[in-house]
Design a protein around this nucleic acid. Structure first.
Lengths: 198, 198, 198, 198
DNA sequence: CATGAATGAGGGTTCATTCAT
DNA sequence: GATGAATGAACCCTCATTCAT
C-alpha cells in the first residue's frame, strides 16, 4: 500500500470509529453526516471522499463488528477442548469483544434494520457463520452426551440474547470488570447445559 | 362511554396497532405517517385527528406495551409461591405476553431511544417498576437460601436479555408453541439459580 | 326579523366580536377558527353555520369598524361649525370610537392586507368616504383662510397616523381617560393648522 | 473578509432584502419561503443554507431596520442643538430612513407580532433605546422652557404615529420628494411644541 | 484533496373547509 | 342547528448527496 493509500485507509477508519460512536449514542437516523464530520473537524463534503454513502458507513460498521467477532471466535472453535469448556471460552470471548468494541457491536445489534437489502444479506451470512460456531459446539455436546438434550437453536438464542443484551446496560464505569462479567455469563449460561450425571 | 367515544377509542387503537406493526417492520424513522395512514385507508391528515404527533404515537406504543407487562406481572408478584416457582411464572408470563403482543413489545425494546426526554422518563419509570418485580424475587430467593448467591442485577440482565431477544427471532410460523417456549426459558434460566443442596 | 333570525344575528355578532378580540391579540393568521370556536364554547364546524369563511369574518370585522366610524363621523360633518372646531370634534370622536371599539378598529388598521381583492376594495371605498370627511374640512379651512395652506392630503395622513397609532399603545389601564386623550390629540394636531393672524 | 465570505454575506443580504420586499407586499404569513427563493432564482432548500428559519429571516429584517434607525438617530442625539432644532432633525432623518428602507421598516412596523418571544424582546429593547432619543429631547425642551409642558410620552406617540404611518401611503412615484416630506413632518409636528412666548 | 454552495426528495404538521348524521 | 370526522393543500424544514472550484 502506498503512503497515499495508507493515509486514506487510516482516515476511513477514523470515520468509521466516529460514526459507530455516534450511531451508538443517537441511533443511525438521528445522526447526520454533518455531525460525524464535525466531530472529526471535517466538512460534510469531505466525508464523501472516503465513504460513498451514509448507508455504506453503517454497513462497514456492521461488517467490521462481524469480522471482529469471527476473528476472535473462529480460533476458539478450532481448539481441542471439551464442549463445555469450549462454550465457556466462546461466551467469555464474545463478552470481551463486545465490551472492547461496544460502539461497533451496538451498531451491529441495534441498527441492522437500517441496512439495505444487499448489505443486510451479507451481514446475515457472516452472522450465520458466527452463530454456527456456537451451534456446532452445542451439537457436539449433545451428541457426546456432555450436554442435556436441549434444542441447540433455542439454547443459542438464549445465550446470544443474554450476552448481546449487554449493550443496553454495560457501562465502562460499572463495578464489574470485563473478565468477571465474562466468567459470570459463562457460568450461568453453561451450567444448565451440563448433564447431571451422578 | 358513548357510541361515538367508543368508535373513536377503537380507531385510535387501530392506529396504534398498525403503527406498532410497521414500526416493528421498518423502524420508527423509516416509517412515515403517510404509510400508517395508507395501511388504514386513511389520509395522512386524518391520523392527526386521533394522534397529536408521530412521537406521541411511539410513546403510546411504548406505554401500552409496559402497561401490558405490568398488568400481567404484578398479579404474579403477589402470589404466595416459593421464589423459584414465582420466577418461573414470571418468565413464562413475560414470554407469552411478548409473543401475544410482539409488535408493541418489539417497539418498546427497539425504538425506545427515539422517544423524547419526557416520554422516555415515563417509560423508564414503568420499566423500573417491572424489573423490580424480578429483582425482588431474586432477592427473596437469595435471602431465603433457595437461590445461589448470584448478583441479582446480573441475573436480571441475563434473564431479560435472553427473553427479550426473542423479538429478533420469534416467528408465528415457528415450530414451538408459546407455552413450550415459555417453559423452555423458565427451565433454562431458573435452573442455574437453584442451590445444589444435596 | 323572526325569533330565529334574531337569534342567528346575535350569534353572528358574538362570533365577530370574539374574532376581533382574538385577531387583535394574535393577528389574523395566528388565530385559528378553532380558537374562536373554543372561546365561544362552540365547535369549529358550528362557526360555519353562521360565517361562510375565515376571510369573511375578517371582512365583517373591517366592515363593522368602518361603519362605526362613518356613523360617528358623518353627523359631525353636517354640523354647522367653523373648520377648526369641526376638525377638533372629528379627531375627538375618532379617538373615542377607536378606544370604545379597540378590537374591531385594530383589526381594521392592522389586518387589512389579509382581505381578498374584492373585500379590500369595498373597505377602501368606505375608508375613502371617511377620509373625505376630514379632507373636506381641511379644504374648507384653507379656502376660508382659517387654516394655513398646508397640503390637505399630507395633513390628513399626519392626523390619521398620529391617531390610529393608538392601537399600538392604548391600554384600558392607562392613566389618561379617553376624553383627555381626545382633547390632547385635538389640541396638538389642530394647533399647527390655525393661521397665525395677528 | 475573504472573497468567499463576502459573497456569502452579499447573498444573505440579498435574501433579507427580497424577503423584506415580499413580506411588505403580502405580509409575513402569506409569504412562503419558496416565493422568496423563486424571486431570487434559488431553490427553497438553498435559502436554508443562509438562513436558519423563516422566523429568523423576519427577525433579521426587524433587526436591520432598528440598526439603521439607531445608526442615523444616535449621532443626531449627540449634536449640540437646541431641542426644537434637534427634534426637527430627528424627524427628518426618521422620515428619510423610512423612505430609503421602506421595505425593511414596513416589516418592522407591521410584522413585529410574528416574532418569537425572545426575538421580540431584543427588538423592543432597541426600539426603546431609539424612542428614548426622542423623549430625551422632549424632556430637555420642557425643562429648558423651550417646549410647552406636554406629556412627553403622548407627544412621542403622536410623532411616531404620524411619521410611521407613512408606510401605508408612501409611494416612490408620489409628488413629493423625501426631503420635502421630512420638512413637512418636522414643521407640522414640532410647531405645537414651541412655547408661544410673546 | 477539500469544501462552499446548491438541491431534490421527502416528511411532519397545521388548518380552513366540508359533510353525513 | 350542531358536530364528529375527514381531507386537500400548503408550508417549513432536514438532509444525504453532488459538483465546480
Amino acid at each position: 500500500m502506498s503512503f497515499r493509500e495508507e493515509r486514506a485507509a487510516q482516515r476511513r477508519n477514523e470515520i468509521l470509529q466516529t460514526a459507530a460512536k455516534i450511531f451508538r449514542e443517537k441511533g443511525y437516523h438521528d445522526t447526520s453526516i454533518e455531525e460525524i464530520a464535525n466531530e472529526l473537524k471535517f466538512t460534510k463534503a469531505s466525508i464523501y471522499y472516503y465513504v460513498p454513502s451514509k448507508e455504506n458507513l453503517l454497513y462497514e460498521c456492521n461488517d467490521m463488528a462481524m469480522n471482529l467477532l469471527l476473528k476472535k471466535g473462529e480460533p476458539i472453535a478450532k481448539l481441542d477442548l471439551p464442549p463445555d469448556e469450549k462454550m465457556r471460552e466462546l461466551i467469555k470471548q464474545h463478552v470481551e469483544t463486545l465490551i472492547d468494541e461496544i460502539s461497533l457491536i451496538t451498531v451491529l445489534l441495534q441498527q441492522e434494520y437500517a441496512l439495505n437489502e444487499e448489505h443486510r444479506k451479507l451481514i446475515i451470512e457472516k452472522r450465520d457463520r458466527y452463530e454456527k460456531i456456537f451451534t456446532d459446539v452445542l451439537d457436539e455436546g449433545v451428541s457426546t452426551g456432555v450436554f442435556e438434550e436441549y434444542d441447540p437453536k433455542m439454547v443459542k438464542m438464549i445465550i446470544f440474547g443474554a450476552v448481546n443484551w449487554m449493550f443496553h446496560w454495560y457501562s465502562k464505569s460499572g463495578r464489574l470488570k470485563k473478565k468477571e462479567i465474562g466468567e459470570f455469563f459463562a457460568d450461568y449460561l453453561v451450567k444448565p447445559l451440563i448433564k447431571n450425571n451422578q
